Amino acid sequence: MSTRRKRSQRHFVKAKAAFGRIDVVFNNAGWSMMGDTEGVPEDVARKLFETNFWGASNVSREAVRFFREENKPSGGLLLNNSSLMGITAIPGMGYYSATKQALEGITQALALELDPSWNIKVSIVEPGAFATEGPKKLGTGYAHPAYTAPTLPSVAMRAYLQTGASIGADPVKAVQRIYDFSLLDNPPFRFPLGKDAVGAIKAELQRIERDVAKYESWSEGLEFDV
Rank of each mutant, 00 (worst) to 15 (best):
V175M: 02
T148A: 12
R68Y: 07
V198L: 14
W218G: 01
A18G: 01
R65G: 13
I120P: 04
M93F: 07
V122S: 06
V25A: 09
P188L: 05
G92T: 09
V59K: 05
V64E: 02
P127A: 11
W118P: 00
S60M: 14
Q101P: 00
M34W: 02
Y179I: 13
S32F: 07
V125K: 00
F49R: 08
M85P: 00
S2L: 03
P171E: 13
G30I: 12
L78P: 06
E69F: 07
E126Y: 00
N28R: 08
N119D: 13
K214A: 14
N80E: 12
V175S: 12
L138A: 05
Y215L: 08
M34P: 02
S219H: 10
A146F: 05
K100A: 07
G139T: 10
G194T: 13
P145I: 09
Q176N: 09
G94R: 00
R158S: 04
L103M: 15
A129W: 06
P91I: 10
V198E: 11
L161Y: 12
R10N: 13
I106L: 15
T151A: 13
K214N: 09
F181M: 03
F12V: 08
M1F: 03
V64C: 10
R158I: 04
W218F: 12
V198W: 02
L138G: 08
V44W: 01
E70C: 11
A165M: 07
I167W: 04
E113S: 12
I87Y: 08
A143G: 01
L112S: 10
T163E: 13
K195N: 11
I124D: 00
V40M: 06
Y95D: 05
A149I: 02
D225W: 04
N71D: 08
E220T: 11
P91Y: 11
Y215E: 03
F189Q: 06
K72D: 13
E133M: 06
K47P: 01
A111P: 03
L112Y: 03
V59D: 03
F191S: 02
Q101N: 07
G92Q: 13
F49M: 15
F181R: 02
S32G: 15
V24M: 02
I124S: 05
F26L: 14
L79Q: 08
L79S: 02
R207I: 05
I120T: 11
M1L: 09
Y179E: 08
M93D: 04
F130L: 03
T107W: 00
F53K: 00
A143Q: 15
V64K: 04
I120Q: 04
L183F: 01
F26R: 02
